[in-house]
């Protein structure tokens, strides 16, 4: 009988098999999510140096640029991580939609949070925002005039660029909304990644939910502090920059 198969069936497999199963794909999303969370945390801490002053943030930016080939290696790694995260998440989502071709006439939700039910949309929004953000501040294609900003040490004046960018209320508010989207995404994903990686039990569960909210809150406040401070004139342009 086929059912005796547990002993006979193939259980040896290549990693391809491991990652082609539902749980394998979820693991990819969770692990890449951990890396991306690490990135957004580091990026926020780095950016907060804008509050130390013009010299600090410009030196930090010059240090990153000075990494040269290493910087591109890091960028390639982050891009690959992001692509894997999005690719597997979309694949899972399409399978999930296909798993219920006929929906209920009367739909109800008992305890699933709105953040958990909007992950694909908040995720795609953040992806689109990341593309805009790179063109805005990293490659400066949207504002070529930012490239010529220099401080008295001859370094690229990231400090003035950030304040100039965020002096525009439309851009600042847009950034703040997108950071809320990111925080909303993380409020589900931080606890979700622990669950998917198997690091959850009855003792941890409540704590993980609070941790997720705390991580989301800290990132939101940390990131939005910069555009908010520029809008409220707490961060001021150095003399001579317009």
């Amino acid at each position: 009988m086929e059912s005796v198969g547990i002993a006979k069936k193939t259980w040896a497999f290549l990693p391809v098999g491991f990652f082609s199963r539902s749980i394998g794909k979820k693991l990819v999303v969770a692990v890449t999510g951990v890396v991306l969370l690490g990135f957004v945390t580091g990026h926020m801490v780095g950016n907060l140096q804008v509050f130390i002053g013009q010299e600090a943030i410009n030196r930090y930016a010059a240090f990153l640029q000075g990494l040269g080939e290493l910087l591109w290696l890091i960028r390639a790694f982050m891009a690959a991580t992001l692509i894997l995260h999005v690719w597997f998440a979309i694949q899972l989502k399409l399978e999930n939609w296909a798993a219920r071709p006929k929906r209920y006439e009367h739909n109800a939700t008992v305890q699933a949070t709105l953040s958990s039910r909007t992950m694909i949309w908040t995720g795609l929004l953040i992806g689109a925002f990341a593309a805009y953000h790179l063109l805005h501040f990293t490659f400066m294609s949207l504002h070529p005039e930012y490239k010529t900003l220099e401080d008295h040490l001859g370094q690229h004046d990231v400090y003035s660029m950030v304040i100039l960018g965020f002096k525009n209320p439309a851009i600042s508010i847009f950034y703040i909304i997108m950071m809320f989207t990111l925080a909303y995404h993380l409020s589900h994903s931080v606890q979700s990644m622990f669950q998917t990686l198997g690091l959850n039990n009855d003792q941890y569960d409540g704590g993980l939910r609070r941790l997720a909210l705390a991580v989301a809150g800290i990132l939101f406040v940390g990131y939005t502090a910069i555009p908010a401070a520029a809008l409220l004139d707490i961060l001021k342009l150095p003399a001579g920059v317009k």
Partner: peptide, 18 residues
């Protein structure tokens, strides 16, 4: 392995921790 494979093959969706 066997049960997860059978689950996937049957056309069930994937858990997203709702």
């Amino acid at each position: 392995q066997a049960m997860v494979k059978a689950m996937d093959d049957a056309g069930f969706g994937n858990c997203t921790n709702y």
